[in-house]
C-alpha cells in the first residue's frame, strides 16, 4: 500500500512514516495542505493519513479539494462527537483522535483501503471455513451452524470483514457497540471468549489470535 501522510508537525510525520514503513507500507510526507494537494495530483495513493488542524490549508479543505477517491483517515486532537461527525461528513472515511497508537493507524488504514475497493458489499461473508449471512444473523463453521448471540455475531462479522488483519479494540467498540467512548471494563475480552468457545465447540482450532491490549486477528487461511 502506498500512503500519503499529511501532517504539519514534522516530528509526528516522521514517527508515522517510520511506523508505517516498519509494517511494510510505502509512504510520502506532505508537511502542508498545499503540498498534499500537489502530491495528490502527481501520484496515486491507496490511502491518506490527514491531520485536521494545519495552518493555511487545513485538513477539512484538503478533504474538499482532493482529487479522486483516495480513502482518508483523519487525525485530530479535536475529539468531541461533533468534531468527528464534522470530519466524517466532510468526506473522511475514518477519524482517529490524537494521541494514537501506530498499530491503530495501520489497522484502520487497512480497513478503509479494503472498504474503498468495495469487495465486501455482499450479504454473505466467507473467511476460511467460516460463513455468515449478515441479514439473517446466521453463521456456520465447516457447514455446521453456530449459535451466536447478537454481540458474538457482530464481533465475528467485524473480524471476518478484516480477515487476516488485526482489528483494534477501539475499532471493535465502534463497529460492534457503536459507543463513542471506551469502556474501562473488558467487555470485549469477555464477549470474545464466549465467541471463541462457540467457534471451537466441535474441536476445531481457534482461528482468532489475540494481540494483548491491542486487538484481534482472524486467521482465515490456515483452516482453509
Amino acid at each position: 500500500m502506498n500512503i500519503l501522510i499529511v501532517e504539519d508537525d514534522a516530528g509526528i510525520a516522521h514517527f508515522l512514516q517510520r511506523g508505517l514503513r516498519h509494517h511494510g507500507l510505502e509512504c510520502d510526507i506532505a508537511l502542508s495542505g498545499r503540498a498534499a494537494l500537489t502530491l495528490l495530483t502527481s501520484r496515486n495513493y491507496d490511502a491518506m493519513v490527514l491531520d485536521r488542524m494545519m495552518p493555511v490549508v487545513d485538513g477539512m479543505e484538503v478533504l474538499r479539494r482532493k482529487p479522486g477517491h483516495v480513502p482518508v483517515l483523519m487525525l485530530s486532537a479535536l475529539g468531541t462527537l461533533e468534531d468527528r461527525i464534522e470530519g466524517l461528513d466532510a468526506g473522511a472515511d475514518d477519524y482517529l483522535v490524537k494521541p494514537f497508537d501506530i498499530g491503530e493507524v495501520i489497522a484502520r488504514l487497512n480497513a478503509i483501503g479494503r472498504r474503498a475497493k468495495g469487495t465486501d458489499r455482499s450479504d454473505m461473508l466467507r473467511a476460511g471455513d467460516l460463513e455468515i449471512v449478515l441479514t439473517t444473523f446466521r453463521a456456520w463453521r465447516r457447514g455446521k451452524p453456530l449459535h451466536l448471540n447478537k454481540k458474538e455475531f457482530a464481533l465475528l462479522a467485524e473480524l471476518m470483514r478484516n480477515a487476516g488483519r488485526p482489528v483494534t479494540r477501539m475499532m471493535l467498540i465502534e463497529a460492534v457497540w457503536g459507543y463513542s467512548f471506551e469502556p474501562s471494563t473488558n467487555i470485549i475480552e469477555s464477549n470474545m471468549s464466549r465467541l471463541r468457545a462457540k467457534l471451537t465447540i466441535h474441536g476445531d482450532p481457534d482461528p482468532i489470535e489475540t494481540a494483548r491490549g491491542f486487538g484481534y486477528t482472524l486467521h482465515a487461511d490456515d483452516a482453509a
Binding site: W177, T185, I187, E189, S190, N191, S193
Partner: peptide, 10 residues
C-alpha cells in the same frame, strides 16, 4: 446488560 453479563461472570 447483554454485553456486560459475560464480563461480570468472568
Amino acid at each position: 446488560v447483554e454485553s456486560y453479563a459475560p464480563a461480570f461472570v468472568d
